[in-house]
Design a protein around this nucleic acid. Structure first.
Lengths: 109, 109
DNA sequence: TGACATATGTGTGAGTTACATATATCTTCT
DNA sequence: AGAAGATATATGTAACTCACACATATGTCA
């Protein structure tokens, strides 16, 4: 019984980015905490970020200022902010449905 | 922006079956109403039901008593009831996470 | 040196989903 | 009677998603 959280990764990502620019590895941590997932799959996350960039949802640029492996820093575009607003509405709907579903389950028959 | 409701179809199905035996087409209606989905994909639903039967979650038998196309009537097994309880726990967790996510989004930055 | 954490990626096979199509029975409208 | 539409069960399939394994680079600490 796995909780269906994977479809929430994209909106969680956008919410994390709304609070400021960040890079993939750090975003994985933030999302993991938000969703209560121990391990976010990094491979798929980076692929997802590139897809979002191709769609104009986020932009990125390399950051070599700090020591260590170069980081690719992502930021939310205006299109991305609009998408997040749409996501929020859709999430509210899902939340409502989940509430109703659980209520239905918990009621005494 | 599609609400991620598809992963909730299986638990919704089990909840519907908990209230009594039913057949595929009718279950599609019940689930659709529970989840606020206009059209449940019948093809995949029937395939899903056969998968659940193979896994011992539900049982089925043909019902030719009523007029019209023969119906295959499904019922929840004990294994299925246990699975539903596990689903409920997992759904509660997802619900919590969704609540937190929306709260995070709605807070003023 | 070797292990581990940080950081960004590619490869891939299994499983899921959306959408189209087929078949059968019954009701309703024209 | 004929056509359309609802009820009911099912198959086919292309596209997509996901989990898991692997590759690569840099820095730290024992």
């Amino acid at each position: 019984m796995k909780p269906p959280l994977t479809p929430l990764i994209e909106p969680a990502l956008l919410i994390a980015l709304r609070d400021g620019t960040s890079h993939g590895y750090d975003l994985a941590d933030q999302i993991g905490e938000m969703l209560g997932i121990d391990r976010i799959d990094h491979g798929n996350l980076y692929r997802g970020l590139r897809r979002l960039e191709a769609e104009g949802i986020v932009t990125s640029q390399w950051n070599d200022d700090e020591p260590g492996r170069s980081k690719r820093t992502y930021a939310l575009t205006e299109v991305g902010e609009a998408l997040l607003a749409a996501w929020a509405e859709s999430l509210r709907f899902t939340h409502e449905r989940l509430t109703a579903l659980l209520k239905n389950y918990e009621r005494k028959p």
